[in-house]
Design a protein around this nucleic acid. Structure first.
Lengths: 229, 229
DNA sequence: CCAAAAGTGTTGACCGTACACCCATGA
DNA sequence: TCATGGGTGTACGGTCAACACTTTTGG
């Protein structure tokens, strides 16, 4: 309403990244140990200020790249957090973004240099500010997202077995899934192509490897679909 | 990551409100004619800067109050818009909020003094900045929201007829709804109490008035539910 | 008495869910 | 040969979608 821009009302805008990964142990987020005060030694999400020359989406991509070395990753804005005292140091509005990465592409050497480590989503440590809430919101969004998008694409390696895919969904929803029904449903979408290879790393018999059919995948997300468990 | 707060990266944070209302013509949003340059005379959402002493939620409530005189309204954060040049005047990150109001509570005299008017959601004028996108996102969220919450509560007057409720859903989803199936489904939730009154304003026979059962309503949103059309 | 909106049930198709046993293989 | 995880089919019940006629009453 006010036709001028009052200099004194400028404030800091930050982005914080909730980075999800999935490995043999389950679904995890990447957290960083703060190396400076306040809250030195506490765990936090990786974040950074939005510069005046970059969009908030670009800032989120930059932060993700700086801490993981990864480009071209599925990212999504989750929510803007703007309580007055969320950061006791200064007034900061922070916009949370989630990223889904294939944990095999992530260079775990970074963890030492950055003071980072992966935490299972149901065993999180104490976190600074409102970062716990950010993760909670990101998880809920992830659960919603699964209903409109075969999200496994992002979190799994190119080739994967059905038991792994089932495990992923079990982790996301934190509940047991009937494998027969799951197979029936996911295969009926004609989204997966079975390869002539087996992964024998988890059983003697071995499980067939599958790969997403990217054409079908793109068609599906275009015209929308629904995948409920 | 950076343990200091660089003064020069402070930017403006604004909120913009998508105010939804529902009347005999259908689902509408409240728009304002800009009275100052740039884009004088163009239509826009009502917005305002977030002050350093208020949370972003508070800012959204304040802006809504300033332009509508309404308190205690259902509001929800939609999305943060942060392209570098979205506002050509200055770098502004704007957080869109939607509000659902009962249009009967809104004082239409305000429209003259504020240069505001209601627009049907499928007949919107040209809008400044990214406000069109904001409305689009808010509409999509509204459609999602309907699945978890009997949203009619917010947009309808206390007493309403079933044909009105059906019309509301038809407007939100922009498609025809089978009235028999709709009645069956909504009544089976035991969420509505039929009154011994009829509204004869739209037909000779008259339609029964209903009212939400707030207790049932609260129980339902607590433990979650699903209402798909 | 007629126009216009309100109200009312049934059926078939499909989908989700529950559930238990055989298979392949390395050790 | 046995232990371990991988893979498979069916039957039932519930939910959703399609569909047309009767009721009321003011003008």
């Amino acid at each position: 309403m006010v036709p001028f821009y009052p200099e004194e009302s400028k404030i800091y805008v930050a982005v914080d990244c909730i980075i999800f990964g999935f490995d043999n142990d389950g679904l995890k987020v990447l957290l960083y140990k703060r190396s400076f005060e306040p809250f030195k030694g506490k765990w936090s999400l990786m974040g950074g200020f939005v510069a005046t020359y970059e969009s908030i989406d670009d800032a989120a991509r930059r932060v993700l790249y700086e801490c993981s070395g990864l480009h071209d990753v599925f990212m999504e804005q989750i929510y803007a957090f703007g309580d007055v005292n969320r950061d006791p140091e200064s007034r900061v509005v922070s916009i949370a973004y989630s990223a889904l990465i294939n944990i095999e592409n992530y260079n775990n050497d970074l963890n030492k240099s950055m003071g980072a480590s992966w935490w299972r989503i149901n065993e999180l440590p104490e976190l600074i500010f409102d970062h716990r809430q950010m993760i909670e919101k990101a998880l809920n969004r992830l659960r919603e997202r699964c209903k409109n998008r075969p999200i496994g694409f992002e979190l799994l390696p190119e080739k994967f077995t059905l038991p792994r895919l089932i495990k992923l969904y079990e982790e996301i929803y934190q509940k047991k899934i009937d494998k027969r029904n799951f197979r029936k449903k996911i295969l009926s979408m004609n989204l997966l192509k079975r390869l002539d290879e087996k992964d024998k790393s988890t059983s003697k018999r071995g499980a067939f490897l599958y790969r997403f059919d990217k054409k079908k995948y793109n068609k599906l997300i275009e015209k929308g679909f629904h995948f409920e468990l």
